[in-house]
Computed example of a mutant assay.
Amino acid sequence: MARPHRAEAPPGGRIAEFEQVYRAHVRDVTAYFARRTRDPQNVADLTADTFVRAITSFAAFDPARGSPRGWLLGIARHVFARYCEGVSRGRDAAARLAGWRELDVDEAAELVVRIDAERSGRALLDGMAELSQADRDVIELVDIAGMDRGEAAVALGISPGAMRIRLFRARGRLRKVVGENHG
């Protein structure tokens, strides 16, 4: 019995669209993780995990609700939070290690350069340690990652008005903390 002819997907489509999103924002996602860990292997793995989650949910992505960058950094926040939970509890360490592939020398060197480039961002994050998590999140997304307030609101799942108020208050608290530590 002859197989029915399947229509080929049109050139481009959602796959090409996701590839464009990936190419446009992979550096932003990598930089996000490079500010949080000095280990190139962790940066590579967390970046890959973010894009695996992104590709599996890309069909639900709605550009009307926010930019691809904001959407990806929102996913990256969740990936990093889950990673931190796993590390702090010490569970699944063997499973994570078993799934790693060793980076070749060029890949590791490139990530080391990126991590070094994010050193000032890491220093700022270290200085923000006295702030609440909510304050750190808004400052990091807007002031460090360079997102506009609307994108950051989408990434955090809050309204633009709440974002504006939260950012204003967080910046004030940070100025106070920095002033106390350097005054």
Rank of each mutant, 00 (worst) to 15 (best):
T30D: 09
A64C: 00
T56K: 15
G86S: 13
A54L: 07
D28A: 15
T30E: 15
A60W: 08
A48E: 15
Q41E: 14
D45H: 14
W71F: 00
V105C: 01
W71Q: 01
T30Q: 13
F80C: 06
R77D: 01
S67G: 07
A108F: 00
R91F: 08
A76L: 02
R96N: 05
G66P: 01
V87G: 02
R77W: 03
T47L: 12
A95M: 09
G90S: 03
A76G: 05
V105H: 08
A60V: 10
G90P: 02
R65N: 05
P63G: 11
C84H: 08
A60P: 02
D45E: 15
F33H: 10
R89V: 03
R38V: 09
T30I: 06
F61P: 03
V29D: 00
P63W: 05
F61L: 02
F33V: 06
T47P: 07
I55R: 13
R77G: 02
T50D: 09
G86R: 14
R101W: 05
T30V: 09
A34Q: 10
A94Y: 01
Q41R: 14
V29P: 01
W100Q: 15
A59F: 10
L97A: 12
E102G: 01
T56Q: 15
D92F: 08
G86E: 14
D106Y: 07
V43L: 11
P63E: 06
L103Y: 04
F80E: 14
F58V: 12
G74P: 02
T30Y: 06
T50E: 10
V105M: 04
F58N: 11
A98I: 03
R69E: 07
R65Q: 12
L103W: 04
W100K: 14
P68M: 00
T37R: 11
L46Y: 10
I75F: 01
W100H: 14
D28S: 15
V79H: 04
P40E: 06
G66R: 00
G99W: 04
S88Y: 13
A93F: 12
T37W: 05
A31V: 15
